[in-house]
Amino acid sequence: MSIQHFRVALIPFFAAFCLPVFAHPETLVKVKDAEDQLGARVGYIELDLNSGKILESFRPEERFPMMSTFKVLLCGAVLSRVDAGQEQLGRRIHYSQNDLVEYSPVTEKHLTDGMTVRELCSAAITMSDNTAANLLLTTIGGPKELTAFLHNMGDHVTRLDRWEPELNEAIPNDERDTTMPAAMATTLRKLLTGELLTLASRQQLIDWMEADKVAGPLLRSALPAGWFIADKSGAGERGSRGIIAALGPDGKPSRIVVIYTTGSQATMDERNRQIAEIGASLIKHW
């Protein structure tokens, strides 16, 4: 067993022997301040990774656009098919120029040779490549099948209805392509620590998230040296922004954090800054 596999296998073990965790309302004060600064709703939840206990939450059962955070769930569904012998990570998928959609920095470079399922998941999570996500959605049967996968996990809230990039439209009061912070946090925890996926697939999923290259201005910008984070960000229309993450000190994750916002007129930089400040408060009061 590799060191990384050992780390993920012992996530519940280490967490069980940690000192009790206590909620700190100071972080919620910052979440509410972010709402004021952005002029928009902000949803927040913080779960203990081992027990699933909610440590703090704000608007945990209000719907927010998922945006690209759905790509972690998508690759979880792909990995479940791999575990069941219905898919192979090494299978190569070929596609054409007509398949390319807006923001496809990886797939646009491989029109000639195609990409493997493993490479597509890596591109979808680490670079948020939209064509990679659409190609992977095709392998599982489309958005409705991802929703069905989530329902089978016990998540009857999260739903995907459309493809990239239309799913980022974020129309107010439109339930399409949305989740709730509580539902997303619980589902992410199941994917990373539950028995739904094999140990190898859980490790692969967290490795992809740990290698995320496009979430630097968010929670990662607030992390002290030595902290662990595996995350996936999302951005959408109407001032929408979000991030889902597993993080913790001492090089291992111990909490799940989900943050979503929508309806702001603020710039992307300002949305990023507010999420980073929430992260800084979380870490300060850990």
Rank of each mutant, 00 (worst) to 15 (best):
L247C: 07
I244E: 01
D161Y: 04
K232A: 01
L219C: 04
D250Y: 12
L223V: 13
N173K: 13
N130T: 03
R273T: 12
G226L: 05
V214F: 05
T138V: 15
G76Q: 01
A34E: 03
V72F: 03
G154A: 07
D129A: 00
K32R: 14
R81D: 05
L74K: 01
F17K: 07
G263S: 08
M127T: 13
E210P: 00
V101E: 09
T69D: 00
S57K: 12
L38Y: 09
I3T: 10
M180N: 13
T147D: 09
R220Q: 04
L199V: 15
I259S: 01
D33N: 14
V8Y: 15
A16R: 04
E46Q: 12
G216E: 07
G142D: 06
Q97V: 15
D83T: 05
G85N: 11
V42L: 13
F17T: 12
W227M: 03
G239P: 01
L79S: 03
T198D: 10
R7Y: 09
M180D: 10
V8T: 15
V257L: 09
C121N: 02
T187M: 08
P217T: 11
S221V: 11
I243N: 02
I54M: 11
W163G: 09
R159L: 06
A77S: 10
G141R: 06
P253Q: 08
M268C: 05
V257G: 01
T193I: 14
T131R: 02
L196H: 15
V78E: 03
M268S: 08
Q203D: 11
F13D: 01
P249C: 07
R176W: 07
E56S: 11
A266Q: 12
T193A: 15
A215Q: 05
A123S: 09
L49Q: 05
D83S: 06
R255S: 03
E56F: 04
K213T: 09
L247T: 06
E270T: 14
R41I: 09
L160E: 02
T262R: 08
R59D: 02
R220D: 03
R41W: 07
N173D: 15
R271H: 07
R59C: 04
Q203T: 14
G234L: 01
R220C: 03
S201F: 04
T116V: 06
G263P: 04
P249L: 06
G90D: 14
I3S: 10
L79T: 02
A222W: 06
T107S: 11
S96A: 12
R159Y: 06
T126N: 07
L28K: 09
P65G: 03
I171W: 14
V101R: 08
L89G: 06
D231W: 03
T267P: 14
I278A: 02
R241I: 03
R41S: 09
I259C: 08
N50L: 12
G194V: 07
A276V: 10
L282H: 02
L146N: 02
T139Q: 13
L10Q: 06
D269Q: 12
T131H: 04
D161M: 05
D250S: 14
E210Q: 12
L28V: 11
I206Q: 12
G239T: 02
G141A: 06
H24K: 15
A124Y: 00
S68N: 00
I275Q: 01
R176E: 07
T138D: 12
L282T: 09
D83W: 02
N134Q: 05
H5W: 05
T116Y: 05
S240Y: 03
D177R: 01
S57R: 12
R189G: 12
L219I: 14
V42R: 00
V101A: 11
A34G: 07
D212Y: 03
P105N: 05
A182E: 10
M268W: 09
G90F: 10
P181F: 00
H151T: 11
T186Q: 14
L135N: 03
P249T: 08
A230C: 14
L135G: 02
T27L: 08
F64H: 01
P105F: 05
I256E: 02
Q86M: 11
F13V: 11
N168Q: 07
V82G: 05
I275M: 11
F70I: 06
M1V: 04
S104G: 06
D48F: 03
G251H: 15
G226W: 06
A84D: 11
V72S: 06
L73V: 12
D250F: 12
V42F: 14
Q97R: 15
P25R: 08
I171T: 14
L205R: 00
T126Q: 09
G76V: 05
R202I: 07
G242M: 02
M67P: 00
Q88I: 11
T27H: 05
T198M: 10
F13E: 02
M66G: 06
L74M: 09
A185R: 00
E102T: 12
S96W: 12
V117W: 01
A148S: 15
M1S: 01
A124S: 11
L146I: 08
L79W: 01
P172T: 12
T126A: 10
T178P: 00
T131F: 05
A133L: 00
R7T: 14
I125L: 12
S96C: 10
S96K: 11
G194Q: 12
D36K: 15
I278Q: 00
L197F: 06
N168S: 08
R59S: 05
I206A: 14
W286K: 02
T158L: 01
G234T: 00
T262F: 05
G90I: 11
E270W: 07
L111W: 09
R159N: 07
F70A: 10
E61I: 10
H156Y: 14
S96G: 13
E270N: 08
A124F: 00
T116F: 04
T193F: 11
Q37Y: 15
L135Q: 07
L49R: 03
V101G: 07
L247A: 05
D48W: 03
S2Y: 12
F17V: 15
P181H: 01
G234I: 00
G90C: 09
T158M: 03
G279R: 01
T107Q: 01
A266G: 13
H285F: 15
R220E: 03
W227C: 02
G194A: 11
E61P: 01
V117R: 01
P105I: 07
G154E: 09
D113Y: 11
A170N: 09
G142F: 01
T262W: 08
S254L: 10
A215W: 02
E145P: 09
L199A: 12
A245Y: 01
E108K: 11
L167H: 03
H94D: 11
A245D: 00
I244P: 00
A40I: 04
T261N: 03
I45Y: 09
L160K: 02
D48Y: 04
I278G: 00
M180H: 14
P172D: 13
G76K: 00
Y103S: 05
A124M: 07
G236W: 01
E145H: 14
R159K: 13
V72A: 08
S281M: 11
R271Q: 10
K30T: 15
F14R: 01
K252G: 10
L150A: 09
I256N: 01
I256Q: 01
F149K: 07
A211V: 08
I259W: 03
A222D: 09
I11S: 07
T116S: 10
I243F: 05
M184H: 02
E166Y: 15
L150D: 01
H94V: 14
I229Y: 04
N173M: 15
G279T: 07
T138N: 15
D269N: 12
W286L: 04
R159A: 06
R41K: 15
V21E: 05
E195I: 03
G239M: 02
L282N: 03
E56N: 11
A23G: 14
L205N: 01
E166S: 15
D177Y: 01
L160T: 10
F6I: 09
Y103F: 09
E237Q: 14
L74A: 06
F13C: 10
E237L: 13
S281F: 15
R41Q: 10
C75F: 06
L205D: 00
G216Y: 08
S122V: 12
V42N: 04
Q86G: 11
T131L: 06
F228P: 01
I229T: 03
I229H: 02
A245M: 04
T186L: 15
G90R: 10
T179Y: 00
T112W: 15
I171P: 08
Q274G: 09
S254E: 13
V21A: 15
H156D: 14
C75Y: 00
I256Y: 03
A16P: 09
R176A: 08
T267N: 12
H94Y: 14
L160R: 01
W163A: 10
